[in-house]
Computed example of a mutant assay.
Amino acid sequence: MKIKKALFIGGIKSGKSLNAETYTLKNSLQKPIYLATTEFIDDEMQKRIDSHKLQRSVQFETIEEPLNLYNTIAKCESSVLIECVSIWINNMLYHGFGFDDMKRELDAVLALDKTVVFVLNDVGCGIIPDNALAREFIDISGKLSQLIASSCDEVYHTVAGISTRIK
């Protein structure tokens, strides 16, 4: 199997996660890793997490890691699905990390000789928010999505459950 990197980008609830899971399963020789990045939990977020767990069933081995993508992925022997980069960016900002820290971490992940599938919310189609933190998140997300997409072999944009290959 050819080592490849892929990005699934789309709006929230667009179907990108399910399509990324299907893609990862098709491109894995053994049981893939589901790298869950969610850290902050409230009742509503717990329902989302439970839904994702049910969706992926037992087809993936789940590893929960909110910050250290590179160290975690470097140890994995199978394909890795990162779900999701947007939550990871949020976690990094919350813990005081900046764009340069995030870029270094993703550059290291992208340099790994492993199949990695990234899931990322497309935040570039909305309005400019009225607060500085939201603007910083959108700026970082946009820059990192460009970094990831430029390094990936394949990029899929997802709308209404349909992923269209754009690279």
Rank of each mutant, 00 (worst) to 15 (best):
K2F: 09
K2M: 06
K2W: 02
I3Q: 05
K5T: 06
I9F: 11
I9S: 04
G10I: 04
K13W: 04
S14R: 06
K16Y: 09
K16S: 04
K16I: 08
S17F: 13
N19S: 13
N19L: 09
A20L: 06
A20V: 12
S28G: 13
L29K: 00
L29I: 05
L29T: 03
A36W: 11
T37M: 11
T37E: 14
T38C: 12
I41A: 12
I41M: 14
D43E: 14
E44F: 04
R48D: 10
R48M: 06
I49C: 07
I49E: 04
D50W: 01
H52Q: 04
H52R: 02
K53I: 15
L54S: 12
Q55I: 09
F60C: 10
E61K: 07
T62Y: 05
E64V: 14
P66E: 14
P66V: 10
L69V: 11
Y70S: 03
A74Q: 06
E77D: 15
S78V: 14
V80Q: 02
V80N: 01
C84T: 03
C84N: 01
C84S: 01
V85S: 05
S86Y: 13
W88G: 02
W88H: 03
N90I: 03
N91H: 03
L93V: 12
Y94C: 09
G96R: 00
G98H: 10
D101L: 13
K103T: 08
K103I: 09
E105S: 08
D107H: 08
K114N: 10
K114A: 11
V117G: 00
V119L: 03
V119K: 00
L120W: 09
D122P: 00
V123I: 03
I127R: 06
I127F: 15
N131K: 11
L133T: 15
E136G: 03
G142Y: 11
G142D: 02
K143T: 01
S145K: 04
S145C: 05
S145V: 04
Q146T: 14
A149P: 01
A149L: 06
A149K: 05
S151T: 12
S151H: 10
C152Q: 01
Y156S: 04
V159R: 03
I162Y: 11
S163D: 08
T164D: 02
R165I: 08
R165G: 10
